[in-house]
């Protein structure tokens, strides 16, 4: 027998212990590190899908024009043309999903309009503003201004 194999027993024992340690570490790591961790970086790749899974509440204006072409026509050329429908009417994904059911309530113009048009020194100087208490305080704004095309002719 050659010299270097004579006392191999303790080497084998150490090697087995070492292999067991590595195996235990790998098994523990496999349990503890979630699926997809490290795929894009130091985080769980599945988190992207988790965030993406949230339901959409605002359908977006593209969904509105399919049915409401009359409003598109009414808004054409007006100063309110480029405002998203849901800026005033609220989130409408339920309305779209129900194919016209779940009708939204009509906004109260005395509440809605001043949010944008109440006079304030913080607003840009060129933005159209009124002092709400003085500007025809009794009736709804829509008595004179059409909401979709507000300029009075």
């Amino acid at each position: 027998m050659s010299g270097w194999l004579r006392d191999k027993a303790h080497l084998v024992r150490m090697a087995v212990l070492f292999a067991l340690g590595i195996a235990a570490f790998l098994a523990f790591r496999a349990v503890m590190v979630p699926e997809g961790f490290g795929r894009y970086g130091h985080y769980r790749a599945g988190a992207l899908d988790d965030v993406r899974a949230r339901p959409v509440r605002y359908a977006g204006r593209a969904a509105c024009v399919d049915c409401h072409s009359d409003v598109v026509a009414a808004r054409h050329g007006s100063r309110h043309e480029r405002i998203g429908c849901e800026a005033c009417h609220g989130p409408l994904m339920a309305h779209v999903a129900a194919q016209g059911g779940e009708k939204p309530t009509r906004p109260d113009s005395r509440v809605l309009c001043p949010r944008c048009h109440a006079a304030s020194p913080w607003k840009p100087k060129t933005y159209p503003q009124v002092v709400v208490a003085e500007h025809s305080p009794d009736g709804p704004c829509t008595a004179c201004h059409k909401a979709h095309a507000p300029k009075m002719s």
Partner: peptide, 19 residues
């Protein structure tokens, strides 16, 4: 992120009346 990955804009941009 749930909107922009589906081709929509964000809720704040969608409802901003002045762009």
């Amino acid at each position: 992120y749930h909107r922009i990955t589906k081709g929509l804009t964000t809720a704040c941009c969608e409802t901003c009346p002045t762009g």
